[in-house]
């Protein structure tokens, strides 16, 4: 299957700014998915609010564009009602770690089978560049004109600590690596989280004088590494373990209780 056939062509071209990395994440996700043996009708893509969350509108699956931060709760409901569906959450750094932070850690703790792809552009782009929980320390944002005094979450360690059974990080500058880890996340039986470092040339880039989209990709090239180079942001898979999935436990419990019923 050609990955571009999974787009809703009548909604294209998409709304993202020139050079925005979100289209690169979407492209890698579709390439990873197109390589699998699947029926698009058995895929549900859920998103919250933000630039990243516009992604669901361009995809020809079952899609839901939900309220701010609540993509994971909606996805949880869908997965429990229809366990046969492949449920994928496309969300942003603000959406998933600020207003949706609680949902994120509890879904990880439960190990419910969702693939959560976090488009981390370090800023709230749609609402004009407020700092998010993933804006690095002392970087500039509309709401931090003298620098952000907060320290960001390390999303990989946050998800790992919360009990996620598959955690990976990739970057838009590495589209093949990105496609590969998303593919592995999609295959994982349990909660999987993939953080993707993506560029926002319009707000984060401009505020922090990072130059053009090409310059921002060069920054990623120099500051990320798949081989653990010192002083760079590590990319790769940081957790991959098997643990009973939430839905499996739930339906097993129902079955056991049913068997114990008297008179049946």
């Amino acid at each position: 299957m050609n990955y571009k056939d999974l787009l809703r062509k009548d909604k294209m071209p998409h709304i993202w700014c020139p050079g925005c990395g979100h289209g690169m994440v979407l492209s890698a996700f579709l390439r990873a998915l197109a390589k699998k043996d699947f029926d698009p009708d058995n895929v549900a893509v859920i998103s919250g609010i933000g630039c990243s969350s516009r992604a669901s509108g361009y995809l020809d699956f079952n899609t839901l564009h939900t309220t701010h931060g609540r993509a994971i709760p909606f996805a949880t409901g869908i997965k429990m009602a229809k366990p046969g569906l492949k449920v994928i959450v496309l969300t942003g750094d603000g959406d998933s770690t600020a207003i949706g932070g609680n949902h994120l850690i509890h879904a990880a703790r439960r190990n419910i089978e969702l693939t959560v792809i976090v488009f981390n552009n370090n800023i709230y782009g749609m609402t004009s560049g407020q700092y998010s929980p993933l804006t690095p320390h002392m970087k500039l944002a509309t709401t931090a004109p003298y620098g952000n005094i907060d320290y960001p979450f390390d999303l990989v360690n946050l998800a790992k600590g919360a009990g996620a059974t598959f955690v990976a990080r990739s970057a838009t500058v590495q589209p093949r690596h990105l496609e590969k880890v998303i593919g592995q996340g999609l295959d994982h039986n349990g909660f999987s989280l993939i953080e993707v470092i993506t560029q926002c040339p319009t707000y984060f880039g401009r505020k922090n004088k990072m130059g053009s989209p090409v310059d921002m990709l060069q920054w990623q090239r120099e500051n990320t590494s798949t081989t653990g180079k010192e002083g760079t942001i590590p990319l790769g898979i940081f957790a991959q373990e098997e643990r009973p999935e939430y839905g499996e436990n739930y339906f097993e419990l129902i079955k056991t209780l049913g068997e114990g019923k008297s008179g049946e």
């Binding site: 071209p13 589209p175 990709l217």
Partner: peptide, 10 residues
């Protein structure tokens, strides 16, 4: 094609 953010290249 893989780097294009806009699905414009094939």
């Amino acid at each position: 094609e893989y780097h294009c953010p806009d699905f414009a290249l094939t």
